[in-house]
């Protein structure tokens, strides 16, 4: 029995080492399944909660061009959430349980969405930095060992690049605007830079699951590796916007071939994770309210479907 178990696990690892995807009905270690359910559902929740800070600005967009773009972007995020919930369900957990975990606060979502969007420049900053960091994280996930997750990520990544470009364009326009617009731009970068850096998660030393996830090829790069890539890319892009990243320690390191950067405020990070960020309560309440307010719609749709089915069955009987 024990031997048999070991060989199943060895076979599983060999499949992964050979870069062959794992599919829903294949045998997998319990821990692999649990890790994926946690990661994919967190990711799905992040896409869904992520609609809230931006949704606030749809009615406030400065013109119609910006408005249709933002609307399309937010709709994409809903789509991403749905692809991911669907991938998660293939692991044997149902949608209602996933929602329950979100609404009860048991499940986590990306802490970045617990920060407020107080100016129009924030929408640009989210597109550039938040979607930018998400892309950094998500591109390697297209090669994740679990088939349904990898396939969902391919779809997501195809759509993300428009998100980042629309954000950057907003910022670029502000950077060429009035002094007040330039100040608004710099202020948004000042507020969004560090939370975006935190999106890659704790440092490798404080991320106990990283090793196993790398071995299972769920993760392809460590948190710190991805964060470094992000800094290197953003530093150059910031020049185009004429903005300063709010980190006095950013400096090119010839030896490493990377930018060095300052220490992240991990107390803030853990504090927001634990629910004490500026908008945690507001976000969860908005999700719960949407779920509760939508109950009658879900019920009515089921009643209508049943009525239709019954009518159809009756007609067949008569015929």
């Amino acid at each position: 029995m024990k031997d048999n178990h070991i060989s199943l696990e060895d076979k599983f690892q060999a499949t992964i080492d050979a870069e062959v995807k794992i599919e829903p009905k294949d045998w997998m270690p319990d821990k692999y399944r649990k890790t994926l359910i946690r990661q994919i559902s967190q990711h799905a929740h992040s896409e869904i909660v992520g609609m809230l800070p931006e949704g606030r600005w749809i009615t406030r967009a400065p013109n119609l061009r910006r408005k249709v773009a933002l609307l399309a972007k937010v709709q994409d995020e809903a789509g991403h959430g749905l692809y991911l919930y669907s991938a998660c369900e293939t692991l044997g957990i149902d949608r209602d349980t996933l929602f329950e975990q979100l609404h009860s606060g048991k499940a986590k979502y990306s802490s970045i969405f617990n920060y407020p969007t107080i100016s129009w420049a924030d929408i640009g900053a989210i597109g550039w930095l938040v979607d930018g960091a998400a892309i950094m994280n998500q591109v390697p996930l297209c090669r994740c060992s679990y088939g349904p997750y990898a396939r969902a990520m391919v779809r997501v990544c195809k759509e993300e690049s428009f998100h980042q470009r629309q954000g950057f364009e907003i910022l670029l326009t502000l950077s060429r605007g009035t002094d007040e617009q330039k100040r608004m731009l710099q202020n948004a970068i000042d507020r969004w830079w560090w939370p975006s850096m935190m999106m890659f998660g704790p440092s490798d030393g404080d991320s106990p699951n990283t090793q196993q996830s790398m071995k299972w090829k769920i993760k392809r790069f460590t948190n710190d590796e991805l964060r470094q890539k992000f800094v290197d890319v953003c530093y150059e892009q910031a020049k185009v916007l004429n903005v300063t990243l709010p980190d006095p320690d950013i400096k090119w390191n010839e030896e490493r071939g990377h930018y060095d950067f300052g220490e992240i405020n991990w107390d803030e990070f853990w504090n927001v994770v634990k629910g004490n960020g500026p908008c945690n309560k507001q976000r969860l309440n908005a999700r719960r309210k949407a779920w509760e307010d939508g109950a009658w719609v879900r019920e009515a749709a089921v009643a209508y479907a049943e009525k239709k089915a019954a009518r159809k069955a009756n007609q067949t009987k008569v015929a």
Partner: peptide
Amino acid sequence: HVGSLHAAD
């Protein structure tokens, strides 16, 4: 096949 979704009918 592209994925799944929930719907009443």
